[in-house]
Nucleic acid binder design. Structure first.
Length: 852
RNA sequence: GCGGGCGUGAUGGAAUGGUAGACAUACCAGACUUAAAAUCUGUUGGGCCCUGUGCCCGUGUGGGUUCGAGUCCCACCGCCCGCACCA
């Protein structure tokens, strides 16, 4: 009897895999390729259970595909630029580069014991000049291709991180990392022309069948396509140059319900008025402030200022509408001006009520409805309504029909035109930070903004910087900044902004296909390895990273860095859930909450007690692992006490992969127990003598069913269900009295089926039982269809849909005979009580239903 | 507000429209043990008559489609997520 000692076998097999280089990906024309990628980590220095879960899922796929004979690419790298490194530099006085590279080393040593099937020879770090020099080269190519431009823009300024944020990085008026209230600043910034690809990025979503519908929908909403009418009101008493106000509306069918025109505080007309009128200036200033105060965001009070200017209604020039400056109108959507139709818009209704403007219904739910509305009437656009002030189409029609008719009518009468708009803005990429990829341009007094020459790349970050003063140290580094102009050779200054770190992660998947190449990519490699067949990561990247990466693949195709076939870089996407843990809380004498680490707590049933004092603590169920709540479980502790295979098995076993899984000590122990049990079975089989046993056929049938079920489970990301089947088969094998040869075949197959999840244990059993070569490269077992069908099947008999009896029949028995048998069953006869059945439904192999 | 998802035992969760609760946890009982741990075995949705190889109810609530619904359709309730003054 030997003992399962994961620490010993795991290290041993990892060494063998590394020695044989079996996970090294080499291009090969005669093998189908499979590219599996997990979202690469930020090198914080510590791996956590979320990493373990994410990379274990990828590893299951990778090992499974390898066993199926695919040429698998499964690389790993580091999303290594970012603010945390600078914060560490400020707090601890360590250079961001030193901190980052040390963290990478630390995390690698923590990841290696998990035994992932990674090709470490392709490792990349985005902060390495060998990575970012290619990013700089592509940046220059993209400027040439017109995909990047510079403009003066009002930007989101994070006053804590002292940098600009993209619109996507502002959440409810706050910086996504710092949580600080974002201010508005006007700066000259670099932008990717992602908005030019709005339609393309939207319509291509349809082709991403193997993406979660949820993610596609989130992107669709984010791109925010709308169809509407753009037209101009002519003004009365307006300042010069403003004899027209362009507006955009998605509800042109409500044009006859217009009662005011609203313009943004940032509208050009508002800016003109602001200059000459103190009251306007005061109001506009208030609005700008108001946009970012917490109170304004919460209450959302609609404020307006009557400019005194009037506009003429396009259909009836005698009708004049007032022009308000309103705080809720955004300059960067549509034209920065709207017409208000209070009857059919909740916000306009609120505004009209406040400023005593008319509320004019254009349509009603029925012909006899009251025209005087007490609240805005906003039915779904697919609902038929009755138009009392329609001007195009039928009286009874849906909103959509009316909108189409209204646009057609307006176009043919010279009132504006139908326009499609998108919510998606261009992606501002400039960041006023040190630890990022330098933007490779030079500012020359003579030549203006000039891209650096490609032969001068990389523009490397200077090493000698200090972080004792807030702001970007590059600004202060005159020696680094001063450089000859690439165009005229005169002394000029480098750009000190660096790129948003989302740029780094927008193309790393492509770099992995040729990680050491002198060019950003190599066409043959990209053509062979792209696309990523399976991408796995957190749903938190559903919009930002995945949208940027999709855009970047297109931009790289245009600039000749990716083949056309790779413009949608991720064929299949899987978004996995988090690892959660209960929180253990007590209160101190001052009534403040105290959070206890799981290892300080002993659980008994549904109660938990502190190990040292025995005091009971409150259990708060399942929350995301968080340092502030002390509900973290360190993977390293789990590996040292149970082994990597246990950690891997457990994170897959308890919940479907797309959902959160709660880490529990008992669950981890159960996983470990199970692996020991498998080990012991293998041990027992080894010690068996060769005498014939009983039930060989039953064991083989169970084995083939398990092969079938587990294979299906892995294919469909049903890892938890696959594991349940493996538990079942283990129990069967444990009790089996079959002969040694058959049991040996069964344990070897079990090891193979487990090998994607618990590769070390599987490898060891394989070797012990005389498996050929490594289990990692052994061909995946095939289920024999003939073995999946039993000779006899148990059919439940229902009467009126309720189960009443069971019969055991030969599998190939025909319907008529089954029906006869079922009707002859005593329970059925008793229930029928002499009555003839109305109908008997026989589903062969499934069920019999007798209808009375 | 708009969009989407999900509601199944004490718990995590199984279930191509076909025996609801697989598998695991927890609990309880038993074997082994001086004892404990470990290991192994067994029970566990609720109720009724406990006589069964018995009957009734049961997948958030109410309705519908179907021979048959956790699964499909409609309405409602609850929870979760995304977006949000988007014209």
């Amino acid at each position: 009897m030997t003992r399962y000692t994961p620490s010993e076998i795991e290290a041993r097999w990892q060494a063998v895999w590394e020695r044989d280089g079996i996970f090294r990906a080499v291009r090969s024309a005669d093998k189908p390729k499979y590219y599996v990628l997990e979202m690469f980590p930020y090198p914080s220095g510590r791996i956590h259970m979320g990493h373990v879960r994410n990379y274990t899922m990828g590893d299951v796929i990778s090992r499974y595909k390898l066993a199926q004979g695919f040429n698998v690419l499964h690389p790993m790298g580091w999303d290594a630029f970012g603010l945390a490194a600078e914060n560490a530099a400020m707090q601890k006085g360590i250079h961001p580069g030193v901190w980052t590279y040390q963290n990478i080393e630390d995390m690698k040593t923590q990841m290696k014991p998990l035994g992932f099937s990674l090709d470490w020879s392709r490792e990349i770090a985005t902060c390495h000049p060998e990575y970012y020099r290619h990013q700089q080269a592509m940046f220059i190519d993209m400027i040439d291709a017109g995909l990047i431009y510079r403009k003066n823009a009002v930007v989101n300024w994070d006053p804590v991180d002292m940098t600009v944020l993209a619109n996507e990085q502002v959440e409810q008026g706050r910086g996504w990392r710092s949580g600080a209230l974002v201010e508005r600043r006007e700066l000259t910034q670099w932008f990717f022309k992602i908005s030019d690809y709005s339609e393309e990025l939207l319509s291509a979503l349809d082709g991403l069948e193997n993406w979660p519908a949820k993610v596609r929908l989130m992107q669709e909403n984010w791109i925010g396509k709308s169809r509407g009418l753009q037209f101009a009101f002519s003004t009365v008493d307006a300042p010069e140059g403003h004899d027209r106000i362009e507006v955009y509306t998605t509800r042109p069918d409500t044009l006859l319900g217009a009662s005011f025109v609203g313009i943004s505080p940032d509208h050009p007309l508002a800016k003109v008025l602001e200059r000459d009128d103190e009251a306007v200036a005061a109001f506009v200033t208030e609005c700008r402030k108001g946009g970012t105060t917490e109170e304004a965001i919460e209450t959302g009070e609609k404020l307006g200022f009557d400019t005194g200017i009037r506009v003429r209604h396009p259909f009836d020039t005698a009708q004049e509408l007032p022009v308000y400056i309103a705080n809720f109108i955004l300059m960067d959507y549509g034209t920065g001006a709207v017409f208000g139709c209070p009857a059919h818009d909740v916000r306009d209704f609120e505004f009209a009520t406040k400023y005593d403007l008319p509320i004019i219904a254009t349509f009603l739910p029925s012909e006899d409805s009251d025209e005087n509305l007490s609240e805005a009437f906003v039915p779904a656009k697919t609902e038929k309504v009755f138009y009392i002030r329609g001007f195009a189409g039928e009286s009874w029609q849906t909103g959509n029909e009316a909108i189409d008719a209204a646009i057609a009518f307006c176009e043919s009468n010279g009132v504006g035109q139908g326009v499609t708009k998108y919510r998606l803005r261009d992606w501002g990429l400039s960041r006023q930070r040190y630890w990022g990829c330098p933007i490779p341009v030079v500012h020359c007094d003579e030549c203006g903004v000039v891209p650096e020459k490609k032969e001068n790349l990389p523009v490397k970050l200077p090493e000698d910087v200090s972080f004792d003063i807030p702001g970007n140290p590059l600004d202060r580094h005159m020696e680094w900044r001063t450089t000859p102009c690439p165009a005229c050779g005169k002394q000029a200054l480098r750009e000190t902004d660096t790129m948003d770190t989302f740029v780094d992660s927008s193309w790393y998947y492509a770099r992995f296909t040729a990680p050491r190449a002198d060019t950003p990519t190599v066409m043959e490699d990209a053509e062979y390895w792209m696309n990523v067949d399976q991408y796995i990561g957190g749903v938190e990247h559903a919009i930002l990273h995945l949208l940027y990466a999709r855009f970047f693949a297109r931009a790289m195709q245009i600039t000749g860095h990716l083949p056309k076939s790779a413009i949608e870089p991720f064929d299949a996407l899987f978004t996995q859930g988090m690892v959660t843990h209960a929180i253990y809380r007590s209160t101190d004498t001052g009534g403040r909450p105290v959070f206890h680490y799981p290892e300080e707590v002993e659980t008994k049933g549904d109660k938990a007690f502190l190990e040292d004092s025995g005091a009971e603590v409150e259990i708060i169920p399942s929350a995301k692992m968080s340092k502030s709540k002390n509900n973290v479980v360190d993977p390293l502790n789990i590996i040292s006490s149970f082994g990597a295979d246990t950690a891997r098995w457990f994170v897959l076993s308890d919940s479907p992969p797309e959902r959160d899984v709660e880490w529990t000590a008992s669950g981890a122990e159960a996983a470990h127990k199970h692996l020991s049990r498998v080990w012991n079975i293998s041990d027992r089989i080894t010690a068996m003598d060769d005498a014939a046993g009983t039930g060989d056929d039953d064991l083989l049938r169970a084995m083939h069913k398990t092969i079938h079920d587990v294979t299906m489970g892995i294919e469909s990301f049903g890892f938890n269900a696959a594991i349940a089947k493996l538990y079942g088969f283990t129990a069967t094998l444990q009790k089996s009295t079959a002969g040694k040869t058959i049991q040996r075949e069964a344990i070897k197959t079990l090891a193979q089926l487990m090998s994607p999840m618990t590769p070390h244990l599987a490898e060891d059993i394989w070797a012990t039982q005389g498996g050929e070569g490594l289990i990692a490269t052994a061909p995946w077992p095939q289920a024999d269809d003939a073995m999946l069908v039993d000779d006899t099947v148990t059919l439940p008999i229902q009467v009126n849909g309720k189960r009443r009896a069971e019969i055991e029949v030969p599998a190939e028995m025909n319907k008529d005979e089954i029906e006869k048998l079922a009707l002859a069953h005593e329970a059925v006869i008793r229930i029928l009580d002499g009555n003839a059945p109305k109908k008997v439904i026989v589903v062969p192999g499934r069920i019999v239903n007798v209808v009375v």
